[in-house]
């Protein structure tokens, strides 16, 4: 069984039509898993269910084989999950530094090392460390959001479109860092609009359409699959 897995998930917002229909997502340690799919397919919803921000009406979520479906969001974070939501992923009226500190809220050890790493990764954040995040540009905010999640030193990192609105050179930085996370033995699960680049580094890929697993396979397999290429990768 995979390190983190959501199996046969069914979920809906306020008792309306289900957004997820029997969808299964898995992520393994030391691997990058990528979810791609059209807008509104339920990718973000699947992430929310994995994190416990939305309760599924069927299916289960397990971490290292243990069922965590009943745990609250904050309990799951304690178990080593970290998440960068697609929107509203920073504390706008707090400074960059405070945002990063909040990422490390559960840690009791010295955080200066990790802080230095994040500032190293995103120098612009270092320059703006005492500015309110709400005053930063979209791309800078995205970096702060990524940095906040890094600060938790998670065993599994979940990212919902982490590169949206970010300058190309920073996109590369973020992808490099995702590979770093993978190489240090952590699990990464990400949703990406930038499907081709994401699948290239993906050990595993899930193509989601209307809340269903349309295709599943390694990144290479999906890139090679003509149907996937035609519908999602623009030929």
């Amino acid at each position: 069984m995979a390190y983190l897995s959501g199996t046969n998930l069914v979920a809906a917002y306020d008792q309306s039509v289900p957004i997820l229909n029997n969808c299964t997502i898995e992520a393994e340690k030391g691997e990058v898993a990528v979810i791609v799919g059209p807008n509104g397919a339920g990718k973000s919803t699947a992430m929310k269910v994995l994190l416990g921000m939305l309760k599924p009406s069927a299916g289960s979520v397990t971490l290292e084989g243990k069922d965590i479906s009943r745990l609250s969001v904050q309990k799951r974070i304690r178990l080593g999950l970290a998440f960068v939501p697609q929107t509203d992923n920073v504390f706008p009226t707090m400074t960059v530094q405070e945002n990063l500190e909040m990422g490390a809220f559960l840690r009791t050890d010295d955080i200066s090392q990790t802080l230095a790493e994040v500032y190293d990764l995103f120098p612009i954040l270092n320059d703006r460390r005492n500015q309110l995040v709400g005053q930063l540009s979209g791309g800078q905010r995205q970096q702060a959001a990524f940095g906040r999640a890094m600060m938790t030193q998670p065993t599994i990192m979940l990212l919902d479109e982490p590169t949206a609105g970010v300058a190309p050179n920073v996109v590369d930085e973020i992808f490099d860092n995702i590979l770093n996370l993978k190489n240090s033995g952590r699990a990464v699960l990400m949703v990406e609009q930038n499907a081709r680049q994401a699948l290239e580094i993906a050990d595993k890929g899930f193509v989601l359409v209307s809340g269903r697993n349309e295709h599943t396979g390694t990144g290479k397999e999906l890139l090679a699959n003509p149907e996937v290429r035609r519908s999602f990768l623009g030929g």
Partner: peptide, 20 residues
């Protein structure tokens, strides 16, 4: 700071492990 974070963005505060 956790209080301010919670006031600012409740979901993200939970995602940082803050207990409401």
């Amino acid at each position: 700071k956790a209080m301010r974070a919670y006031a600012d963005n409740e979901d993200l505060a939970l995602l940082s492990g803050i207990e409401p």
